[in-house]
Structure formats: C-alpha cells, structure tokens
C-alpha cells in the first residue's frame, strides 16, 4: 500500500481508535475515583456500554434545529482538532503554525454547545454554558502564554517540529527547560478537562449537570463521544509540547499519565465558585506562565 492509502486508512481508523481509548479513559477515571472513595466502581468498559445504549435509544424531544446541531458541532469541532494533533508521531495535517490553528479550533466545540443549549431554554443549562465560556476565557489565556513560550523556545509553531526537537530520551523533553510553562499549562489543563476544582459548568449540586440537562438519548451519546475525544486532544497537547510525543503505545501511556494526575487532584478538591476559578486562572497560573515566558525570552 502506498503512502496515500496509508493516510486514508489512518484518517478513517484514527478517530475510532481515539474514541474507544477515550471511553476507556473515562471508564478508568470512574474506577480510579471509586477506589479512592472506598468503592468498587463500575467495570472499566462501562462507558462504552453507556454509549451503545444511548445511541440505540429513540430520538428524544427536539427543541429546534440549533438544538440538534449543537452537539454535532461540538463533536465535529473536537474531531477536527484531533486531526491537528500528532498521535504516535503521525500527523495528518502538519505545517508551520498548526498549533495556532488548533487554538482556534478548540473554541468551536464550546461555542457549538452554547448554541445548542441556548435553544434548549433551560435556565440551568444556560447558567452552565455561561460558566463554561467564562471558564474558557480564564484558562485560554494561560494556555496561550504557555504555548507562546514553547514557540519562542523552539522557534517553530509546528507540533511535528517540536516533537522532533525533543527526540532522544527523557532528558530532552521540554518539561525540564520549560518547567514553569509546563506547570502553568497543567493547571490550565485541569480547567480544560473540566476536573475539579474547575467543574463549575456541570456542577450537579448547583446547576444539575448544566449543559447536559436538556440533552438525552442520542444527543447525550454524542456528547459522551465529544468528551472522550476531548480528553485525548487536551492531554495530547501537553504530551506533544512537553513530554516528547512518542510511539503510538507510549503516546497514549503519557497522555493517560497526564489525565491520571488531573484525576488525583479531582478526587480531593471541592469546586471553586466561578468567579474564584476565573480569578485563580488569571493570578497564579498566569503569573507562573508569564515568569516562564520572560525566562525563555531572556535566556534564549
């Protein structure tokens, strides 16, 4: 098979692989949290069963065109972002500047959700999505600061280039020279993943699962898939920028390790109020990121 054929096969199978692995991540998250909480927890494949069940349900009540399109837009926005993330040293779309394109694409998914939830008309969903967008404004700043320091350090805005520069073992990973930026980005990641203390958008005790409150059946299934891809994409950015990418197996091991750290923090933290979360992002992580950026600019 020639290179083009391989690429086409990869395009078709990669999202399926990522969805399945992402669902296993969610299952593992439930299991790990359960063990911390002295419970047995569901089997690790529970989320796959859930998604199959949700997709075999009849079409639930519809609130309008945008209501149906919202989850689709969120899902496809995440799927497009995935194409820009090199997984196992294979990038489908790789060019100088793809990191910046990815930053724009990451916003599509929450905006899609906002449009869908807005048409649903449930106040809890509206509050939830307003919180999600506010939170996004908080962590995006930190994310951009960290990414800029990586770009400044390497002189390249392409994931593949950055991964190549980190090849040659653990000592070459950018997490060592760019430790402060990595730390800031890990804090932002906690917000991107929606793990506590930054799970305000879906807080059950406050807004009863927030944006998801009106979505049921197939829509909820689609949102589960969106969440599963989201975890892989978001941890993938960190793995590619700071942990040196890796072969397919090691890439997923590293990505799960990043997710695992987030889970441990998630298990012992209550959630901030939304204002406190926003203030937190613009103080500590932003300050750490800025110091990192200044250090890179001076030392470079």
């Amino acid at each position: 098979m020639n290179a083009v054929g391989l690429n086409i096969t990869w395009i078709i199978f990669m999202p399926i692989l990522v969805i399945i692995i992402g669902l296993f991540y969610l299952g593992a998250a439930r299991k790990i949290t359960a063990r911390i909480q002295n419970r047995y927890g569901p089997p690790i494949y529970q989320n796959i069963i859930d998604v199959i069940k949700l997709f075999s349900k009849k079409n639930p009540t519809n609130h309008g065109v945008m209501f149906s399109l919202g989850p689709v837009m969120a899902f496809s926005g995440m799927l497009i972002s995935l194409l820009f993330i090199p997984i196992g040293n294979k990038a489908l779309l790789s060019f100088n500047g793809d990191i910046i394109v990815l930053l724009y694409l990451l916003v599509i998914a929450p905006l899609g959700m906002a449009l869908g939830v807005g048409e649903g008309g449930n106040p809890m969903g509206t509050i939830g999505i307003a919180r999600a967008l506010t939170l996004m404004l908080g962590y995006e700043v930190v994310l951009v600061i960290s990414i800029i320091s990586v770009i400044l350090y390497t002189g390249s805005a392409s994931f593949m280039e950055i991964i190549k520069m980190q090849s040659g073992g653990v000592g070459h990973w950018f997490i060592w020279p760019l430790f402060l930026s990595a730390l800031a980005m890990d804090m932002a990641l906690q917000g991107m993943l929606g793990e506590k203390p930054f799970d305000q958008p879906v807080a059950p005790h406050e807004v009863a699962s927030g944006p998801m409150v009106e979505f049921g059946g197939k829509y909820l299934g689609l949102l589960q898939l969106y969440h599963a891809i989201g975890i892989v994409v978001e941890t993938g950015i960190f793995v590619n920028l700071f942990l040196g990418g890796g072969t397919l197996f090691w890439w997923f091991v590293k990505s799960f390790a990043v997710f695992f750290v987030a889970l441990l923090i998630n298990a012992v933290m209550p959630r901030f109020r939304i204002g406190q979360a926003f203030a937190f992002f613009w103080t500590y992580p932003a300050a750490i990121g800025l110091i990192g950026l200044i250090l890179v600019a001076i030392l470079k």
Binding site: T33, Q37, N38, R271
Partner: peptide
Amino acid sequence: ISGALGLYTAPQW
C-alpha cells in the same frame, strides 16, 4: 456539605 461543594470523596467515606 462536602458533597454540595463538590468534594465527593468525603460523602463516600
């Protein structure tokens, strides 16, 4: 009260 604040480990324990 811990559950209401999102600290779900406490109610389980």
